[in-house]
Design a protein around this nucleic acid. Structure first.
Lengths: 258, 258
DNA sequence: CGCAAAGTTGAGCGTCCTCAAGCAGCGTGG
DNA sequence: CCACGCTGCTTGAGGACGCTCAACTTTGCG
């Protein structure tokens, strides 16, 4: 039926409340340790034995995956309310480094404690399931960005995603302080630092963003929608319509019901 | 400590048994419906209300994500034992299309049935958690491939991943039947169909793969390790050492314990 | 004040995309 | 049976996007 019409995400900033409630639920039902983070601190490292899950209460954490051959990539950024270490459950070893990019606080909980608490408090289990599900979805968006967007648009999309993350948490979205170097951003987005720099300059020339004076890491976003429009424009320039689309199957074989 | 030394994955084909056991556990404790799949059948569509989870018993399914602007991408392939629909839990709507690429059988289970069963049979819950965790890890590998490898190597890595998936399921890995067109592969890997074709030709010239006569979709892989070596070589050609590495922080701030 | 790290910008080049032509497999119908 | 058309695949030529290399500026810190 309504294929393209993906329903809009839930209300604007009711999310923020949901996150606060989730955190509250956690702290009331699961034994946890609070740990203060400073930029550069590692929560855990790739290959380390999995034992704890982490929930970020404040601050910003990057996830860095490293391959056996030495390649490494920033595969994700985590904000308040996000869970860390979920990828360690399957193999009983973490699959990434988790490194703080800013001061903050993380809640450390033993995985078995959490599971125990879940049996008593089913809402907790729901919280955990949703966190994982969300992570999967987010990663797929990142993949799609890498696979289908030109460099400029990828940077714009990255900023839009960051702004969204802030909005979801009830914070102002007209100003972002990037706590990463151009090299880190480039690594995350699959491009070089020079390309990131040029893309940002181009966004500035197009009045989509503005640099706050002093330091090129504070970015002002007058209008978040303009970022989305910039992405659209890059897409439209490539092809008249339906960029890189797959040939759609005959739309048959719905067979939704029994 | 042992940073780069990520421990090798569990024994060779004990995995196959683990998958079979998982499926058995499922079928014994969760009410499920079996559904036969034919190539082109859609299990579910993006935006549809989430209600069921699916576990693939045989066959091959692709996950296609579609963005609001019409872009779409094959974000994953699922084999026997894999779970489908996990991304629907958070938003209560599926985030992808799941389309069969081959004949097969999928087990359909109501999510709430599963959760109920989990309270009685904790191993089931463990199974579910692991499936999600594995999915997260797999997606990050895909991201890294997109972000850090040149086109040729991406294709090689794709084949290696496919062979791995077969090996994990106790199947022979010296022969792969690609059930996708070059366009689909290219879409998945973020390149055009022509580039896929050229990459495959190059792999053939390098004797890393061979085409089975009749149809260019059956690929023979004399030696899986050769694929990995091909990736390494593409990497080495780019830079003398440490391709696209991040500047590693002072390695301080371990603070593992209390 | 001076050095190191981060960022910007330009010039040249390589990888990959675009466009185009040709071929192979396959089902349909005369 | 073969002509026909259709879809999928391969290969080549040319061009564009993004990478490499390099010079320079700015910021931050001892």
């Amino acid at each position: 039926m309504n294929r393209a019409a993906i329903p809009a995400d839930p209300p604007p900033a009711r999310h923020a409340q949901a996150i606060a409630q989730g955190l509250d639920l956690l702290q009331r039902h699961v034994p946890l340790r609070r740990r203060l983070l400073h930029a550069g601190d590692a929560l855990y490292r790739s290959g380390q034995a999995f034992e704890h899950l982490y929930v970020l209460n404040s601050g910003l954490v990057k996830l860095v995956r490293l391959a056996a051959d030495g390649r490494e990539q920033v595969v994700g950024l985590q904000f308040r309310g996000d869970w860390l270490g979920l990828d360690g459950i399957a193999k009983e070893r973490y699959g990434c480094d988790a490194v703080a990019l800013d001061t903050g606080e993380v809640w450390v909980l033993r995985y078995d404690d959490l599971l125990r608490a879940c049996t008593r408090t089913p809402e907790l289990l729901k919280l955990l399931h949703e966190a994982k599900s969300r992570e999967i979805g987010r990663e797929r968006d990142a993949m799609m960005s890498l696979a289908t967007l030109p460099a400029d648009a990828r940077v714009a999309e990255f900023l839009r995603g960051w702004a969204d993350a802030l909005a979801t948490r009830g914070l102002r979205t007209d100003q972002i302080t990037l706590r990463m170097t151009r090299a880190e951003i480039g690594n995350h987005l699959g491009m070089t630092l020079e390309t990131v720099s040029r893309a940002l300059s181009k966004l500035e020339r197009g009045a989509v963003i503005r640099f706050e004076e002093k330091g090129r890491r504070d970015i002002r976003i007058p209008c978040v929608e303009a970022l989305g429009r910039f992405v659209q424009r890059s897409l439209g320039a490539q092809r008249p319509a339906a960029p890189r689309a797959l040939p759609r199957p005959p739309a048959a074989a719905y067979a939704l019901s029994a």
